[in-house]
Simulated assay, not measured.
Amino acid sequence: MAALKANLKVVQTRSVIGQEETMRLTIKGLGLRGPGSSVTVKNTPSFRGAIKKVIHLVTVEEVDG
């Protein structure tokens, strides 16, 4: 069984215009500032849950810590 990588690279691919306020706040909470912006976050259950909520607005890839 492969181990999970330590970090996730999250890239915002779509705008939050027209999205619910909770999704806008989730994007902001992840540290994303607009389409094309990216952040690297820890691979924890809380970050994975936030990403799952806005998965239609972002792309995600695992990266080494």
Rank of each mutant, 00 (worst) to 15 (best):
T13F: 09
S15G: 12
R48W: 01
M1W: 05
E21I: 12
K28I: 03
F47G: 00
Q12D: 13
L32N: 06
K53I: 00
E62P: 08
V16Y: 06
S37C: 15
V41R: 03
M23D: 13
T44Q: 00
E21S: 06
M1Q: 14
D64S: 06
E21L: 07
A50I: 00
A3H: 11
Q12P: 09
K42T: 00
I27C: 04
L32M: 03
A2P: 11
T22L: 10
L30K: 04
I55G: 04
L25I: 03
P45A: 00
M1A: 09
E62F: 03
L30C: 01
H56L: 03
R33K: 13
V41W: 05
T26Y: 02
S46G: 01
S15W: 13
G36A: 03
L57T: 11
Q19R: 14
L8F: 11
A50Y: 01
L25K: 07
R14K: 15
G36T: 07
R14F: 13
R24T: 13
G29W: 09
K9H: 07
S15Y: 14
V39D: 02
V60T: 15
E20W: 14
D64P: 04
G18Y: 07
S38M: 11
F47Y: 01
G36D: 14
E62K: 10
S46R: 02
A50R: 06
Q12L: 15
R48K: 12
V60R: 15
T13L: 08
G36W: 11
K5C: 02
H56P: 04
K52N: 02
S15R: 13
R48E: 00
A6T: 08
K9A: 06
V10Y: 09
V16A: 08
K53D: 00
V41T: 07
A3M: 11
G49H: 00
G36F: 11
A2T: 12
I17P: 03
R33G: 07
I51K: 05
V16Q: 04
R33P: 01
S37W: 14
M1Y: 14
R48M: 01
T22Q: 12
L57V: 10
